[in-house]
Design a protein around this nucleic acid. Structure first.
Lengths: 154, 154
DNA sequence: TTAGTCTATTTGTATGTACAAACATTTGAT
DNA sequence: ATCAAATGTTTGTACATACAAATAGACTAA
């Protein structure tokens, strides 16, 4: 009924996995993240963006003047990562920064606003794509479980 | 009963999530991967390794002479990534490469073998750590669901 | 046997992410 | 009013990962 890994006992469902490491959540989570990122990047490519930038843009467009700190909470990325993302978008002419005291306000440019519908659309397609493959209820169930885990683990 | 995102309807369980993007599997999966990687790196630090290198080492020690191709299947990483990982381990004196025809055989050094128990131990602790937080059955359930998704999505 | 295809590996290049430290501003305590 | 602590942001640096192209060996069909 159980298979040995970690010198512990794990459910047999893991026995027929491709990888020896499937029983490890670190490993599986990273594999899933790589797969999903690939799919997401494919979809957001119609807007000329990779996935992180698409989410960044959505955050800024929905709340012009938003601060990096808040973005980093939305996206669950470190502040330094957010700074780096914003920098690149500024360079590409899609975002602008306005220093304000110790904080910074981030605004979308007109080009960014024009891009917004495409991004939203790509996001919807991304959802449909994995949902069609996994089945809607399976996909939602998985997403919810992962969110719960994220909340507890942090 | 449902919340709107993607202009679609998603279960309310996602409503009270930290991030607006929790309904998106791409997003949640990446967040989980980042959290798990951080935890894993903390545990494997006792062996002076970050997580990917630890898994690489385990693969090589359990099958000395293993080829990069097979490693890339075990680890679900691209061949070029595996080459890069091996290179660094070679530089650190933990692995050696022996070209053989069009393939390459990878061997552990004595130092690597000596490190093995520490790595195994760290891996076990990693498992215990997230299992204690999530609960054993939740953790296993989640891992299995993710593996299933990985298999279908690829 | 030779040409052409297939397969394994490596290399050049780019990207996303993080940590730690530096900096700048605000707040709070005395 | 001043100085210390807290907070938000950026910078220097490093790392894991990937894609596309280059290389090199192995297999196959004529």
């Amino acid at each position: 009924m159980y298979v040995q890994t970690f010198d512990l006992y794990l459910p047999r469902a893991m026995e027929k996995c491709k990888s020896k490491y499937c029983g490890c959540l670190y490993y599986s989570a990273n594999a899933l993240a790589r797969i999903m990122t690939k799919i997401a990047d494919e979809e957001f490519a119609v807007a000329g963006l990779s996935s992180s930038y698409a989410f960044l843009l959505m955050s800024v467009i929905e709340k012009p003047g938003i601060q990096p700190k808040e973005i980093s909470l939305h996206m669950q990325l470190t502040p330094s990562t957010v700074t780096r993302l914003i920098e690149k978008m500024e360079y590409r002419g899609l975002l602008s920064r306005k220093p304000n005291g110790r904080t910074t306000e981030v605004y979308p440019t007109e080009d960014a606003v024009a891009l917004f519908p495409k991004i939203k659309d790509a996001w919807k397609k991304l959802y449909c794509r994995y949902t069609e493959i996994l089945g809607k209820s399976k996909a939602n169930e998985l997403t919810i479980l992962i969110n719960q885990a994220n909340e507890i683990l942090e």
